[in-house]
Amino acid sequence: MVKLTLDIVTNPLAAFGRYSRLLFHAFGAMPELSTYRKNLWEQMVRIGVDSLPIVMLAAGFSGAVTTVQTSYQLVTPLIPRSIIGAIVVPSMILELGAVVTGFILAGRVGARIAAELGTMRVTEQIDALESMGLNSIGYLIVPRVLAGIVMFPVLYVAACFVGIGGGILIGDLGGFVPAEEFVDGAREFFQPFDPIFGIIKSLVFGFLITSISCFKGYYTRGGAEGVGRATTQAAVASCVFLLLADLVLAATLL
């Protein structure tokens, strides 16, 4: 029982230690561009470009829903309708754009990375890479994490663009607020730091999702079942740490 209680404390600490060591090795492997250059492009396409449709779909709908709900909650005629734009645009830029993209990537990209690396681990492909004299961390993890850091802000911008567009469109077509009023309201309360904050957030999210998923996949044990476990853990842990980072960033930077 004492051991069990102790494990609750030591296991996460040990995991964090191994995670840090993995990152440390990955950082050390970064200068060896030649080992992963080809993989980097490949991963940028698979993490970034291929995720565009689903991210844009989700963001478009969340923008539209935010607009409809905001106008539903604005019951008093004293408040101008342009306030809808002033609410939807910053919430998209500050929170929804990055978080919606983050959740989708945690499921889509995080799970895939963990399954990929987990399978490579249990079928000894990682050992094969190492035995050839290749830096497996540099070859497998660095391009994935870099691709996450580079492509996540791109996805974030796409999400904001489509989300705000969806908000304007549904506001105008649904008769909630004309497009001009929506934009006027958004401009009145627009802070140039907001999108910068969003970019910072998406950089952090991109790093967290890919590095956590790589960590879970790279250290998979126990055959097919282990791969399944790693995949689930990667998606769940990515989401949890994404929310934590969201709170920490909002508390420190806003």
Binding site: M120, T123, E124, Q125, D127, A128, S131, M132, G133, N135
Partner: peptide, 23 residues
């Protein structure tokens, strides 16, 4: 060091149990 170890490893060819081909 790790980079020297990797140089040593290039003297080896390893056939893993399941082949470990990159799928």
């Amino acid at each position: 060091s790790y980079s020297e170890l990797r140089r040593v490893r290039r003297n080896f060819g390893v056939l893993f149990q399941g082949g470990a081909l990159f799928d």
